[in-house]
Design a protein around this nucleic acid. Structure first.
Length: 381
RNA sequence: GGACGGGUGGGUGAGUGGCUAAAACCAGCAGACUGUAAAUCUGCCGCUCCUUGCGGGCUACGGAGGUUCGAAUCCUCCCCCGUCCA
């Protein structure tokens, strides 16, 4: 049992590891000003201050404790100063739970054609109107502080994997120096009882770089740590190998967030490496594209085979959609391009992810995550 | 009865002598999606054969003939559909 409650940097926050599993998985609890988060936790992605297709009430009903939003996107529209004036992001979007904001580091990767990176920061050409914007580590934090998210991420440089070692080394070094600047800026401009800052480990697919970067980052003493730059092109085996190296270097008493993962069958792998938090666009985006996650694997609801199928998406799912609607109806909605398809599909997929997480926590509690994992992976193959 | 305009693959609709099994879009079928430029993107979409190859054969642009080395494209007749005039 570890606790970070003594750490002055996390006074308003508290992270406790309640149990561990033989695999190395941790059952924990992260307390924030906007509620408690049971870990390992899955965080649905709400980039533009909305989880596409779900109302905040839906998310509450689903049991979402924390969701992700995005610095870059909210900075561009509607603007962080506006959100500050309107009482911060929680109030603006009427979300009572916790919020983690990504810094824009992922947009360094995903908008690679629209940006230029220097040691000072990143110049973006807005994907909305082409206007130019400069995001430095300090600026990212300024925005995140204005938004008032519970957990703020430092700006990092996320690059494609695999990338050449020299390029990876450069990005990792830059990310580290930005982390140092971020820590400094945060300490002067932010109340650590209101917001918690996470540093991000980079280092691509190179074990030595990951080790070195993680160690240097830990020296900066962040209250929480993320592992970034993974699941961006490399194999799942490499993702795990890199996450394992990074996680093994991080302090036991701080939360660990593996950014941007993953597929349902991969989640237990990450949890077994000691990861406490994850986020992924997969449940929400896939839902919009008609890909539903079930206990028996993926189900593409648009397939002709479901045209007259009266069964629910997943016989063993307890979600509101599975309790009420047939595959035939959901297929019809999808094929017709109806809004309700997105709403119902998204609801089911988020439920599936959260339920999967609940079961994982349960497994850790009983020390049998390994069995859970092999059962899950056998079913989803 | 007359004058124009038009009939193209499941639909809409390009094409007006060879590069056309025939654009594009839709529909249909299948797949992808991992810190969201994604209600997006990709592939297939006449039939058939195999030694699966930028392969072979067959059928196809209302119908039947014809011109031509070659026709969805030109000519003749016929059948349908619009619009207008009687």
């Amino acid at each position: 049992m570890f606790s970070a409650s003594e750490n002055s940097a996390t006074r308003g926050f508290r992270f406790e590891v309640l149990a561990t599993d033989p695999t190395g998985a941790r059952l924990g609890r992260l307390t924030t000003p906007h509620g408690v988060i049971d870990t390992p936790a899955f965080m649905p992605v709400g980039t533009a201050a909305t989880v596409k297709g779900q109302t905040q009430q839906d998310l509450e009903n689903l049991g979402v404790q924390i969701l992700l939003s995005n610095t870059y996107h909210l900075y561009l529209r509607p603007g962080h100063e506006l959100i500050r004036k309107l009482g911060g992001l929680h109030k603006f979007m009427s979300w009572p739970g916790a919020i983690l904001t990504d810094s824009g580091g992922f947009q360094v990767f995903s908008l690679s054609e629209l940006r230029k990176v220097t040691d000072e920061g990143v110049t973006f050409r807005s994907h909305l109107d082409g206007s130019e914007h400069f995001l430095s580590p300090e600026k990212a934090l300024e925005v995140e502080i204005a938004l008032g998210s519970d957990i703020v991420m430092v700006l990092d440089e996320c690059i494609e994997a695999p990338s050449p070692e020299s390029r990876t080394r450069e990005a990792a070094a830059r990310t580290l120096s930005w982390a140092r600047r971020s820590k400094e800026y945060f300490s002067h401009h932010c109340d650590p009882e209101k917001q918690m800052i996470f540093g991000i480990v980079q280092g691509g697919t190179y074990a030595a770089l990951r080790r070195e970067n993680a160690d240097a980052l830990v020296d900066l003493d962040f209250p929480g740590y993320a592992i970034g730059g993974l699941a961006v092109g490399e194999s799942h085996a490499i993702t795990c190998e890199m996450a394992a190296i990074a996680a093994s270097r991080l302090p036991q008493d701080r939360p660990r967030y593996l950014m941007g993962v993953g597929k349902p069958e991969q989640i237990p792998d990450y949890v077994a490496l000691g990861i406490d938090m994850m986020d992924c666009v997969l449940p929400t985006r896939s839902a919009r594209h008609g890909c539903l996650f079930t206990s028996q694997g993926r189900l593409l609801i648009k397939n002709a085979q479901y045209i007259a199928d009266e069964r629910p998406i997943d016989e063993s799912c307890g979600c509101a959609v599975c309790r009420r609607y047939s595959r035939a109806y959901l297929r019809h909605l999808y094929a017709s391009g109806e809004f309700l398809a997105t709403i119902l599909n998204t609801h089911h997929n988020i439920y599936f992810y959260l339920d999967n997480m609940r079961k994982i926590r349960e497994a850790i509690r009983f020390g049998n995550l390994e069995k859970f994992r092999s059962d899950l992976q056998a079913r989803l193959k």
